[in-house]
Structures are given as structure tokens and as C-alpha cells.
Design a protein around this nucleic acid. Structure first.
Length: 587
RNA sequence: GCGCCUGUAGCUCAAUCGGAUAGAGCAUCGGCCUUCUAAGCCGACGGUUGCUGGUUCGAUUCCAGUCAGGCGCGCCA
């Protein structure tokens, strides 16, 4: 609807320009929804932007613009108001047409092609396989997955990526912890490894290792990823798009083979993380191993390239990146004096791989406690000198999550020890509430997850409020069935003019906002906009539902109302689907 | 000390690249079920947008400073 109005205005500007009444360039005009009904449905600020260069009063410019607007059946009337706003009041017909569109497009309503099929890589969670996923990962998973769904809806080809370290010191620590458990050493024993992982899950890994179990992580890893990276950079993304291949590790049962223990433990935890994420409705397209960057020489290549570009120097026996040339606040070690690389170099190599694989956009989601690494990775990418834009990749940082239950913070779980796990959260709050609550807030503000509220089956709980609106429409259909009332949509669409009054109107207005919300949420990487919107749509629907009876005797009126209820249900279902929340037919 | 994030109603949070009179829910108080699910609806109460300046037609939004909270600042990842 916005674009239709924009076209009208541009048309008006054009005709003024032809008349010589306007000699300034087209302003960067904004058409927006009004906050108050008095100001019409949409408002435009063009006149205020033009006033200065023209040296005329804004309201005068507005009048001129309004007079030049072409005829159409979208706009009922136009007013010039306030400092020079052009306010548009739309015809009922305009709203009815939008409802027709929503019903016609069905599951596609709210989708767009603005991504034009280009590739976007969304990296999120990226937890190391050293323990169960915690609530911070849960927030990342919900946000990243919802963002991915939003990108899909706006016409992007989305690749969900999970990057993990499968070789470093933390993994060694994991292997040592499991080995200690295998040998019957408890965390409080003096022989327990320093900084060992103390959670109960370590005992489970040890016991499965001793009993010779085979575990399979169901997703692409290892050789497959290396092959994928190599081939995709040659052939383009689509041909090399990964399927799902499993990999299996069978426990050797030998307590002294630390390497075997490590491999088994990593696979064991990878499987557990996969299962938890799948239970959370999240699946990845690409699992990317940090180790593959070393075996393929990618890390070395990055360092050499940066050196060739003259952005490195040697000092104190180490090789440094001159990160200060690229906005970082200090230079950073790339290769330590012992010859190994610091963690951010493979990170640069990994992002380079994304670039080479053709990601037009790359979104990297990180916990805010890692924000320090952002500047140096960007500096590294710039130092390569291969024309990577400064705003690539885009980062989404999410702040901490605390879990509150019974008015007190929950800090521990039995399995993991010192933190609350994703699994705990799903068990405490349920899938739908967990996903909704984790994305309902802007990611850069801290989140207090109130378990009691998430569990509440009352009007306090926005998830139930939204789902209830959906279930109510379904219930209306059950009633129609019971009363043998027939509803035919194409017949109903002929009588939408029977939808009058503020209640139905508010619902129509809300429905028409959906495509704009989806677009804005994807563009700005702010999935919380969608969560908030759905609550507002559900609110408008509940008000209407209470004010007007749908199943009336007047056939045309009844059909029109049911059609609008159906459109509401469609948008609720589409929107909830993008959040990964179910849309129940009854509650 | 430096960097990033946050500060909006008693509480939890919104506010569409700077828009008009800052909005919801909860809590409190008062109403609505012989009608499609009351897991709902209606009404009332509630604000110096942390503070001080600046930019302009207009600032919760942008800039500077300041206060408070969170997170970072390693040849750890």
C-alpha cells in the first residue's frame, strides 16, 4: 500500500517538474503509517523536505503537491496538516483489496522478492562441543533462526551456518575431563584436571565410552565440509549446497587413548547439541569446522595475504596485524611466538570462506561478551585488500539472558552445573513460549526470562494471547460446520463492502501492515518487531470478535466477516510460522 | 582508564531510516458471559523518555557532556 501511495506522489512530483513548478531533485520522501486516526492512514513528509530548497512555506508546497495528485480509487481524501504533512485517508475499497490480496496469496502473504534469490549466510549459536547448550545459545538460536525465516520470506536464499572449534584447548580440556571420569576420578578429587568440566554430562560421556557405544551426529562435518568449501568456491553456492550426511564414532573403550576419547566426546556432544536444537525447531545447512581451515591451509593463506598487503609486522617473536589501520584500538597478534595462531585468524579465514562462497549478505550472531572480537575480524578482512565492504559481515549481538522462576534467578542445572541449559528452558517453559519470549525483545537489551509468565495460561502471556486468536477463528469454522453453514470464499469476496465500522477496519489495517513488518524485521535484523506486531494484530482481532458476531443470519455479511477472520488467521499462522511458534486450531 | 550495549508509567517492554497529543501488557480500581472459546472485551488511574546542553520546522530517536547498570579490554577461545 505504501508503494502505491509513493507512486502517486512521484507522479505528482513529475508532473510539477514538467510544468516547471518544481526544479529541485526528488526528495527522499518517507511515507509512514500515522499514529493517530485524525491524521489519516498514511502521512508523507515530502513538502517539509522540499520547503527549504524551494524557499517556500511547507504547507504551501503541500497544497501544490496535493493538487497535482492523479486520480485513483485508493485515496478517499487528502489533507494538509500540522507543519506540512500530507495526510492520506484511504477508501474502504483500498482495505478490502488488501484483504483480497491476503486471501489470494495465502501462505505467501507477507512474502516478497526483495532478496531476489541472492545468498545470505546466517551464522548463529556456533557453540563449542564441550557441553550442553545454555540459555544464551537458546537466545541465539531463536533469533538466528527467526532471522533466517524472515530472510527466506523476503526472497533471500538462506544458509544457516554453525561454526565450531573442534581442536583447541577447550576440547583438550573436555577430553581430559572425560578421561578422568573414565578412571573414576570425581571433580573434587585432587587428581581432577585443572579447569576440568564438572557437569554431570561428563560422567554420561565417560560411561558411554566405556560401554563401547556408537554415536552419530546427524549433520555434515569433517571431510564433507572441506569438500563443500572447496567446491562451492569454484562452482557457486547452489550446486554445492550441502545435504545432510551423518558421521559416526564408536567408542574404543581404551582409557589411555586420549585422542579416541576426544573424538568420541566431541561426537557425543555434537549429537546432544543437534538434538536440542532440533527439539527447538532449528536445523543448520552448514556445519563448519575450525580444524578444516588449518588442514586446508586457509589460515596460513590469510596470514600470508595480509603480510603481502603490508599490514603486518614482527615484534617480540610474534607476527602482528596492524589492526589500528582499520579502526581497531590496538594491533593484534596473529601468530604467537610458539608458531600457533590466535583464535581470530581462523575466524577471519572462516569469514573469507563465506565471502568466497558468494554470500551477498552475511549475518554473524554473537553473544555481546564476544563483541571485542568484532573489530579485529573486520580489520583482518579489510587487511586482505580484496574489496570486502566495511559493513560486511553484519553483526547481531545479543545481550545476556537471566532466567527467573518463583521470583528468584535460576543459576544452575544438574546436567551442566553452573548454567541453565536450552533443554531446561524447553522443559520449563515449552517450545512455543521459549521461542517467543527469546525474540520478543530487542537483542541488544538484556533479557529476563520469566518462567512463571511463560508457563501461565492466562492473558498475561502474549504467546497464548496470539495463539488464542488463531484458535478462535478455527472455532468459528467448527461452529459453522456444526450448524451446517456453508462458506464460499469467492462468493464472500464479492461482499467485502459489508465490512464497515472501526472494529473490522482496525483488523484490516493491522493485516495490511504485515508485509511491511516482515520487510522491516528482515532489513534491520530485528525479529522482535514481528513478535510485537503479532500481539497487536491479535489484540485488534479480539476486540472485533467481542464487538461483532460473525455468524449472523445475513449471508453476505456473515461471509464478509468470516473472510476477514480467515485473513486474520492466515496472517497469524504466517507470522507465528516465521517465529517458529505453532498456530493451534483449538486451545 | 578505554570500548560496546542499556536507561521510557509502580513492574515488563514498544515507539516504523528525526514526525504530529510517547503506546501496549501486568499491577490497582470499576464494568461485560441465555450470542461464534471470559486463555477474551470495555472503562479509569498512571510520564520532566536518567540528567544538562546542542543541531532544526520538529528529538525517546542524531551530536557533546554527565550519572547509573551490564559486558568486554590476553601471544585464552
Amino acid at each position: 500500500m505504501k508503494t502505491a501511495l509513493r507512486d502517486l506522489l512521484l507522479h505528482a512530483l513529475d508532473s510539477l517538474r514538467r510544468n516547471g513548478a518544481l526544479d529541485t531533485p526528488a526528495p527522499d520522501l518517507v511515507i509512514e503509517r500515522t499514529r493517530s486516526r485524525e491524521h489519516g492512514d498514511f502521512a508523507c513528509n515530502a513538502a517539509m523536505l522540499l520547503a527549504k530548497p524551494l524557499g517556500r512555506k511547507p504547507r504551501e508546497v503541500a497544497e501544490t503537491l496535493v493538487a497535482a495528485l492523479p486520480d485513483n480509487d485508493l485515496v478517499e481524501r487528502v489533507e494538509v496538516a500540522g507543519p506540512g504533512f500530507i495526510n492520506f485517508f484511504l477508501t474502504d475499497r483500498a482495505w478490502h483489496e488488501e484483504i483480497r490480496r491476503a486471501l489470494r496469496e495465502g501462505v505467501r502473504y507477507g512474502h516478497s522478492r526483495s532478496g531476489a534469490g541472492r545468498a545470505v549466510g546466517v551464522e548463529f549459536v556456533s557453540a563449542n562441543p564441550t557441553g550442553p547448550l545454555h540459555v544464551g545459545h537458546a537466545r541465539a538460536a531463536a533469533t538466528g533462526d527467526t532471522l533466517s525465516r524472515l530472510f527466506s520470506a523476503t526472497g533471500w536464499k538462506v544458509y544457516r551456518e554453525f561454526y565450531y572449534n573442534d581442536a583447541g584447548g577447550q576440547i583438550q580440556n573436555l577430553a581430559l575431563s572425560v578421561q578422568a571420569r573414565i578412571k573414576g576420578i570425581e571433580p573434587d578429587d585432587p587428581r581432577w584436571p585443572a579447569d576440568g568440566y564438572r557437569g554431570d554430562y561428563i560422567r554420561d560421556v565417560a560411561s558411554d565410552y566405556l560401554s563401547g557405544k556408537t554415536v552419530s551426529a546427524g549433520s555434515a562435518v569433517g571431510d564433507y565440509v572441506r569438500k563443500y568449501v572447496r567446491e562451492s568456491s569454484k562452482r557457486g553456492l547452489d550446486e554445492a549446497a550441502p545435504g545432510t550426511t551423518g558421521y559416526q564414532v564408536t567408542a574404543k573403550q581404551d582409557p589411555d587413548d586420549l585422542d579416541a576419547i576426544r573424538q568420541f566426546a566431541v561426537a557425543w556432544l555434537r549429537r546432544e547439541q543437534d538434538e536440542d536444537l532440533r527439539a527447538f525447531g532449528v536445523e543448520f545447512d552448514v556445519y563448519f569446522l575450525e580444524s578444516s581451515l588449518y588442514t586446508e591451509g586457509e589460515v596460513r593463506r590469510v596470514v600470508e595475504r595480509i603480510a603481502e598487503q603490508g599490514h603486518s609486522y614482527e615484534a617480540d617473536g610474534a607476527l602482528w596485524l596492524r589492526a589500528t589501520d582499520f579502526g581497531d584500538d590496538k594491533d593484534r597478534v596473529m601468530r604467537k611466538s610458539d608458531g600457533t595462531y590466535t583464535y581470530f585468524v581462523p575466524d577471519v579465514a572462516y569469514h573469507l570462506s563465506k565471502w568466497e562462497r558468494g554470500y551477498k549478505r552475511a549475518v554473524t550472531e554473537l553473544g555481546a561478551d564476544h563483541h571485542g572480537s568484532l573489530a579485529r575480524v573486520k580489520a583482518g578482512l579489510q587487511a586482505l585488500g580484496i574489496g570486502i565492504p566495511k559493513d560486511w559481515p553484519e553483526y547481531v549481538l545479543h545481550q545476556m539472558v537471566t532466567v527467573v522462576k518463583g521470583g528468584e534467578e535460576v543459576k544452575i542445572s544438574k546436567r551442566a552445573g553452573s548454567y541453565v541449559t536450552l533443554r531446561d528452558l524447553i522443559e520449563m517453559a515449552g517450545l512455543d513460549a521459549a521461542r517467543y519470549f527469546l525474540i520478543a525483545r530487542k537483542s541488544d537489551s538484556q533479557l529476563v526470562f520469566d518462567v512463571d509468565l511463560a508457563r501461565a495460561q492466562t492473558n498475561d502471556n502474549p504467546v497464548y494471547y496470539i495463539q488464542y486468536a488463531h484458535a478462535r477463528v478455527c472455532s468459528v469454522h467448527r461452529q459453522m460446520h456444526d450448524r451446517s453453514i456453508v462458506f464460499e470464499q469467492h462468493e464472500a469476496l464479492k461482499h467485502l463492502e459489508r465490512l464497515r465500522g472501526e472494529f473490522a477496519r482496525c483488523v484490516m489495517v493491522e493485516i495490511s501492515r504485515f508485509p511491511e513488518i516482515v520487510e522491516a524485521a528482515a532489513d534491520n535484523r530485528e525479529p522482535h518487531l514481528l513478535a510485537q506486531y503479532l500481539r497487536e494484530l491479535a489484540g485488534a482481532f479480539h476486540v472485533w470478535y467481542n464487538a461483532e458476531q460473525f455468524l449472523v443470519d445475513d449471508d453476505d455479511l456473515r461471509n464478509a466477516r468470516v473472510a476477514l477472520a480467515n485473513a486474520t488467521r492466515q496472517v497469524l499462522a504466517n507470522g507465528l510460522g516465521m517465529l517458529g511458534v505453532t498456530a493451534p486450531e483449538s486451545m
